[in-house]
Design a binder for these strands. Structure first.
Length: 311
DNA sequence: CTTATGACCTGATAGC
DNA sequence: TGCTATCAGGTCATAA
């Protein structure tokens, strides 16, 4: 698992290494940690080392050179940097993306795969590093272009997902609920980790088809998604703060996953051996006892006979 | 239209 | 020891 490898030390004043594959909580933690270093500052120089990680205009201006950063936003797993003149630059961390803030004159410990960097008027440098290059950057001249190109196809943010939207979007979907939760057009921010965790929390089998879920299922699922993400944001934030404040230690935080990454172990709730298989091409772990294919008390629907024509 | 699948990419790890 | 095979997964293009 790459989560350990992502937590190596660094000579920067701080590093923003997500403890896990970046999903919504990790991106939100990065966003919050970057804010004090970026907001109000001017990009004095932008440098692109790999043009193919950028979608859109790759000019210095498009890469925010000379621009003053006003806000850092996030929708799902997508981070966006907004400037006073209205330009927008997005960063998606993909599988292995990192955003590093370096003090003047320092270099990252691992200086490979550095694809883009921004020198700030503070002297600090912001660096985008992404070994696997599943992540990337996009540039937009204004807010409406950014919205049309990047936000229009994204569902509402998973941190504030409500039951009504979930039910409306999925009630007629003929696919496993887990596959639907991974679909960023339905809701933005849930990946493989939090999909499995949320489904475990509400006792829904990840292979169950959306059409088999009722309004109460969607309501409890929406509650669980918000809850598990909010708790991860809080924990991830403290982890990053620990790292910044501590003397170089990586921080002791490790989120307690109930099922994710626990293949071959037993359910933390009932101690039944967990099951593992691929759903939507992703490793999926669940408890066959806590997450039955049929909810308790529900019997298979009887076959319906054709109505007899009445004379 | 909806849903499914392979490709992309590199680092870690297991096994020989 | 060094080599090879396998696995991880977010998103996109393409297929069914």
């Amino acid at each position: 698992m790459s989560e350990q490898s992502n937590r190596k030390g660094c000579t920067s004043i701080f590093t923003l290494y997500p403890s896990f594959v970046p999903e919504l909580p990790e991106v939100e933690s990065v966003r919050r940690s970057l804010e004090p270093h970026l907001l109000g500052h001017i990009v004095t120089r932008s440098t692109l080392h790999r043009a193919d990680i950028v979608e859109g205009d790759t000019s210095a201006l498009a890469l925010l050179e000379g621009e003053r950063i006003t806000t850092l936003q996030r929708r799902g797993k997508l981070l966006s940097i907004h400037t006073k003149s209205g330009r927008v630059l997005t960063v998606h961390l993909g599988m292995s993306g990192q955003l590093l803030v370096l003090a003047s004159g320092t270099a990252p410990k691992n200086a490979t795969h550095l694809h883009a960097e921004w020198l700030l008027d503070s002297g600090q440098r912001l660096i985008f590093r992404d070994p696997r290059r599943f992540g990337g950057i996009s540039t937009h001249a204004n807010e409406s272009d950014f919205h049309a190109a990047r936000l229009a196809d994204l569902g509402p943010d998973a941190l504030t997902i409500d039951a009504a939207h979930l039910a409306a979007a999925l009630a007629k979907a003929k696919r496993p609920i887990k596959a639907a939760l991974l679909d960023q057009r339905i809701l933005a921010g849930v990946g493989n980790i939090y999909a499995d965790e949320s489904l475990f929390m509400v006792g829904i089998n990840p292979a169950r088809l959306c059409t088999g879920l009722n309004a109460q299922d969607f309501a409890r699922l929406a509650d669980a998604i918000r809850d598990v993400l909010a708790r991860a944001v809080a924990a991830g934030g403290s982890s990053l703060r620990d790292y910044v404040n501590a003397s170089g230690d990586e921080g002791s935080y490790a989120l307690e996953h109930a099922v994710y990454g626990r293949s071959g172990q037993t359910c933390p709730r009932c101690h039944t051996p967990l099951k593992t298989r691929l759903i939507a091409q992703r490793t999926t772990v669940w408890c066959p006892s806590c997450q039955p294919m049929r909810p308790p008390g529900v019997k298979p629907a009887p076959h319906r006979r054709a109505a007899k024509p009445r004379p």
